[in-house]
Computed example of a mutant assay.
Amino acid sequence: MTETPVSEMSFEAAMRELEQVVSRLETGNVPLEESIALYERGASLKKRCEHQLKAAEEKVAAITQDAGGNAVGTAPFETE
């Protein structure tokens, strides 16, 4: 776990730390007080990731829609 404030973390850093928190909690070998602190940190990390994903989705939507809400400059994704 880092000491970096969650509000200053990149999406990738927050996800990495969230995965570490979950892994530590899943072991069940963490004292109660530490478990509570980890859970609180994990909740903050989750919220940060959700916020950053929502912001990214809004940016993509703004880029791919015109003023009328119609998709522009996009083509269907095709797989071979």
Rank of each mutant, 00 (worst) to 15 (best):
V30G: 01
V6H: 06
A37Y: 00
E12W: 10
T2Y: 08
I36F: 08
G42N: 03
E3H: 11
V30P: 00
A43V: 06
T27C: 05
P5I: 07
S23I: 03
Y39G: 08
E17D: 10
M1F: 14
Y39H: 08
S7N: 11
N29F: 09
R16D: 14
N29K: 13
P5V: 08
R41L: 04
M15T: 10
F11N: 09
E3R: 13
E17A: 08
T4Q: 14
V22Q: 15
V6K: 05
L38S: 03
I36V: 15
E40F: 02
V30S: 01
S10F: 05
S10M: 04
L32T: 10
A13F: 09
P31V: 06
E34V: 10
A43G: 02
L32N: 07
E8I: 02
E19W: 03
E33D: 14
E40N: 08
S7R: 12
A37S: 08
A14Q: 04
V30W: 03
S7E: 15
E3K: 13
E3S: 14
S23Q: 15
E8A: 13
Y39C: 01
R24V: 07
P31L: 05
Q20C: 08
S10L: 09
V6E: 02
L38F: 08
F11A: 05
R24P: 00
E26C: 06
R16H: 11
Q20E: 15
V22S: 10
T2S: 15
V6D: 03
T4L: 14
M1C: 09
A13Q: 14
N29D: 14
E40S: 03
S35V: 02
M9Y: 00
G42M: 01
A37K: 13
V6C: 06
E33H: 07
S44L: 12
E40R: 11
G42P: 02
L38A: 04
F11K: 12
L38P: 03
E40Y: 02
P5G: 06
S44C: 04
A13C: 07
E34M: 08
F11S: 11
V30F: 04
G28K: 05
A37P: 00
L18H: 10
R16V: 06
P5Q: 14
L18M: 09
I36A: 04
E17T: 07
A13N: 10
R41V: 03
V6L: 03
P31C: 01
M15Y: 08
T2A: 13
